[in-house]
Design a protein around this nucleic acid. Structure first.
Ligand SMILES: [Zn+2]
Ligand SMILES: [Zn+2]
Ligand SMILES: [Zn+2]
Ligand SMILES: [Zn+2]
Lengths: 149, 149
DNA sequence: ACAAACCTTATACTTTACTACAGGGTTTAG
DNA sequence: CTAAACCCTGTAGTAAAGTATAAGGTTTGT
């Protein structure tokens, strides 16, 4: 008693059945006991593990990172805070770099978009199209659009 | 004369040969003339098109968006600024949403990471691992870590 | 003449994170 | 008892944006 079948684990964690089996194949979820008919039987420890995965995903960790975190979690005594923090900081750096890249794009795109009238007439004079046609350096986009504005 | 072969177009645009053929298959680059031996022969217009793609990519547009932009660019007279600006604004919104999502992740991850000592001792007390083990709502992460700190 | 460098097509593989079958067996409610 | 709901394995498909490889044909330089 007390065992959950895959559908129940799915309902409790919000992770799809298929995805749970996929996580098992990827080594994230450990292979559970089986009923006589071959059904997966999960314990409360499995529920916690699945919830750990959900939370780690929310933090921006990918499945590969989560595998590592799970190993550290399982071997808590033999693992060190340093190992865990290294992973977290690497992920933090990755996230920060993505943000910077997106902000660079946002800035450049805003520049050329603001100058476009957005009207119903022909796009021959469109600043967006012209910018994409002629300018290489995003810094130049700002300069040129600023002059025009 | 004046034609470029794929390697030359590649060298001038920084787009890999394979990628150029891939863009052609995806309808981004139009099918060029062929030499008698079947070699692709590109014109200066193709160079400008390839450079347009490079710049649009830098702005964060995906290949599908770029297809649309290219159509608008080719039919500049019959296209409107409104159509172009709609595409740009949709992409801008997408980028802004990605930034927000990443900033949410960054904030939550920073909270739990700052409280971790990062030392060489056992990770049993690790705030990162504990946070991933116990807390669901990112708002709670901040609260709990704040109390501990 | 012959190799190096270049080009061709078609097919398959890469990464990430799933999702969707097909073709079964099992459990449960009425 | 039977249908619905659930579970199993295995395979294949999805999205995005390419990269790699095989097995050739062509061009260029010496
Ligand atoms: Zn306009
Ligand atoms: Zn415009
Ligand atoms: Zn510590
Ligand atoms: Zn720690």
């Amino acid at each position: 008693m007390g065992y959950l079948r895959i559908g129940q684990l799915s309902a409790r964690t919000g992770i799809n059945n298929e995805t749970l089996r996929f996580y098992e194949a990827r080594g994230l979820m450990s292979e559970p006991r089986r009923s006589e008919a071959g059904y997966r039987l999960y314990t409360e420890a499995d529920v916690r593990k699945a919830e750990f995965i959900v939370r780690a995903k929310k933090m921006g960790f990918g499945l590969k990172d989560i595998s590592e975190l799970l190993s550290l979690r399982v071997e808590k005594e033999s693992s060190t805070c340093g190992e865990v923090k290294d992973l977290a900081e690497a992920k933090l750096l990755e996230i920060e770099q993505k943000i910077e890249e997106l902000q660079r794009m946002k800035g450049a795109l805003e520049q050329i978009t603001e100058a476009c009238c957005g009207g119903q007439e022909s796009a021959i004079h469109c600043t967006i199209l012209n910018a994409l046609d002629q300018i290489d350096d995003p810094a130049e986009v700002s300069a040129r659009v600023a002059v025009r504005a």
